[in-house]
Nucleic acid binder design. Structure first.
Lengths: 145, 145
DNA sequence: TTTCTTGCAAAGACTTTGCATCCAT
DNA sequence: ATGGATGCAAAGTCTTTGCAAGAAA
């Protein structure tokens, strides 16, 4: 999704819920949107944000990320290391292939897997609402080492 | 895997590492092995264990579970609720279908998904070491409510 | 003004660990 | 007697929240 659309979506959400826009919030949102393709942890985003304004606190970044998730412009992920990571909402669903050595993350889509998942759910009479698929391995670069 | 084999595997591990068997450890292991097919949390196992010996502490259950994982007779899982759950090591790899309402867990195997995962990894030149697939949905019983 | 936001610090929820004591070998 | 095991309490991690003070609208 284009950044412009994300801003629109977010602004709609803010208006609809009578929320305000502030200096801090603007910086955090702007910085988060600059992480296109990454999967930032709260601490990482905080660090980036503080380069622009060192006064901003952890809790504000945390709450802004929650806001972005609620507004539907960010996705929260929990990979194997236990910390939350956030990525920009993208048009297409995708899963992740993660290097256990360097942490590099490749995103991929696979319709066949999605279809089988639906079948498995149906067979067990579950009404599927979501799923989580993560592949862990060692990337090419790390294999060389 | 049969309980008997698990005991054997565990005993080998204990011997190999010069670890001792104790009253507490025996009770915890026995109780854990009785949870066949379940995915117990530490607290849950502690409660079961305390029915047999109320003096046993949380840390002992915790450490025993770590031991079982190290010995290869238990698997540690992290589902969506953030708490660790433990299941008995089973011969066949399987994934989980989890009810978000009541927490019921169905285990399933699907070779096609496994194969595709390998392909995805290969295509990206990752050396696959593990994966995590969880389906979330609402089970039949909970749909009725 | 009124209501939302911020930043700090404190509280939670779990998981891990230090240590004196206890127990199996 | 040794060295591992236990229980408790304390320390870690990360995530959430209460609150007084500060900004939007």
């Amino acid at each position: 999704m284009k950044i412009k659309l994300l801003h629109e979506k977010l602004n709609n959400y803010l208006t609809k819920n009578r929320l305000k826009s502030t200096k801090q919030r603007d910086i955090i949102v702007e910085t988060f949107f600059e992480t296109q393709g990454e999967h930032v942890k709260i601490e990482e985003l905080l660090e980036l944000v503080r380069k622009k304004n060192p006064q901003i606190g952890y809790a504000t970044v945390y709450r802004t990320l929650m806001l972005l998730v609620d507004a539907g412009v960010a996705h929260q992920r929990h990979f194997h290391d236990g910390q939350s990571r956030f990525e920009i909402e993208s048009a297409h669903h995708h899963d992740h292939l993660i290097c256990t050595e360097c942490g590099k993350i490749v995103e991929f889509e696979n319709n066949t897997i999605e279809e089988i998942q639906e079948k498995v759910a149906k067979k067990n009479k579950y009404n599927l609402t979501g799923h989580k698929l993560e592949l862990y391995g060692v990337c090419e670069d790390c294999q060389k080492k």
